[in-house]
């Protein structure tokens, strides 16, 4: 949001170039697979960040929409023979339709009540997926999902898939940047910061939240579809609570309300998840501790470290401190 745009665009160009050459540095299929997972989590976390970061509402239902997208595209391609490329927008549309209905009901309440409602709706979607065996094959899951393909270009391995998801991450990052630098996004932030004041300024709080929620679920659905066609197997577990927790952890640790935060958080999450494999089930305890530590000591997430450093650096040189970027949701209660 800051305007020293020259240095900014240079840094962004450098970052994108680094991301583009990463698979060549990875050297083996395992690391390339991790890169894909990083980008997938970054995509999903960016979408969740629209709700948590910009609208300031906590949702526990996000994984369910990822699942809706994954199942939509998987069922369309395995049972109706629809090309996965067409399944992708369908996944986004169906997830958005679910988001519209659920958001329409759940966004009537705010704060903890909204969070609990989304948890409930997520559980309902999980249960339906788990038991509607005729459609979803229940706990057996759907197997033999064809890989994504654009014409002759098949995304059947990690490297091409990485570039596909990277492109989607960059597009979503641009969507988010465009959002917060527009009237619409400023309405999002106004609603997060002070809903009664936002309403008195002519902002329809309910519609604003619904728009954000539906946009977030649409992107989640697309992410889910990519996952399904990459892993080639999906089970109802994709909608499970552990995935909800993972996405929330990624957004909070990285820095909610920012664009870099969710991408960075996803890197930390995937990196720790793999490097802590030796710790077995203890990993989740470590993640819980990390989440707690972040909330207490670094509410702005990892990205706020950089802003802190820059501000202290400026203070040393007697320069005016810049505000800490897009802020956390702490102020929402006022």
């Amino acid at each position: 949001m800051n305007t020293n745009s020259h240095g900014h665009s240079l840094a962004i160009a450098g970052g994108v170039a680094a991301l583009a050459v990463l698979p060549f540095l990875a050297g083996n299929a395992y690391l390339e697979h991790l890169l894909v997972l990083w980008m997938l989590y970054a995509l999903l976390a960016l979408s969740l960040n629209i709700v948590i970061g910009y609208l300031g509402e906590l949702t526990f239902g996000h994984a369910a929409f990822v699942g809706v997208g994954a199942y939509t595209s998987a069922i369309l391609s395995t049972q109706l023979g629809l090309p996965p490329l067409l399944g992708l927008p369908m996944a986004g549309l169906v997830a958005a339709a679910f988001g519209l209905v659920i958001g329409y009901a759940a966004l009537r309440v705010v704060g903890p009540q909204f969070a609990i409602l989304t948890l409930g709706f997520g559980a309902i979607l999980f249960t339906i997926t788990n038991h509607w065996v005729d459609l979803t094959r229940g706990p057996m899951g759907i197997t033999d999902i064809p890989p994504m393909a654009i014409g002759p270009l098949a995304f059947d391995s990690a490297r091409p898939t990485y570039y596909l998801v990277l492109a989607l991450v960059l597009a979503t990052a641009w969507l988010c940047h465009a959002l917060v630098s527009s009237r619409t996004g400023r309405a999002f932030l106004a609603v997060r910061e002070n809903a009664p004041l936002a309403a008195s300024l002519g902002i329809n709080v309910f519609h604003t939240k619904l728009l954000g929620f539906v946009a977030a679920t649409a992107i989640a659905g697309i992410g889910g579809a990519i996952y399904a066609h990459y892993i080639r197997v999906i089970t109802p577990d994709i909608m499970g609570v552990h995935n909800v927790a993972a996405l929330i952890i990624v957004v909070i640790i990285g820095g909610r309300g920012t664009i870099l935060g969710p991408i960075l958080g996803a890197l930390v999450y995937i990196g720790l998840l793999e490097s802590l494999r030796v710790a077995g089930p203890l990993r989740m305890v470590i993640f819980a501790a990390l989440l707690t530590g972040t909330v207490v000591f670094l509410p702005g997430g990892l990205v706020s470290l950089w802003q802190r450093w820059r501000n202290s650096h400026k203070a040393e040189n007697n320069l005016p401190a810049t505000p800490t970027g897009l802020p956390s949701t702490e102020g929402g209660a006022k």
Binding site: M1, R186, L189, A190, E193, N194, P196, L197, P323, P327, S328, E330, G331, K334
Partner: peptide, 11 residues
Amino acid sequence: TSLFPSLTALD
């Protein structure tokens, strides 16, 4: 007092 606390004055 009612404003948007964690946005800048300009925002």
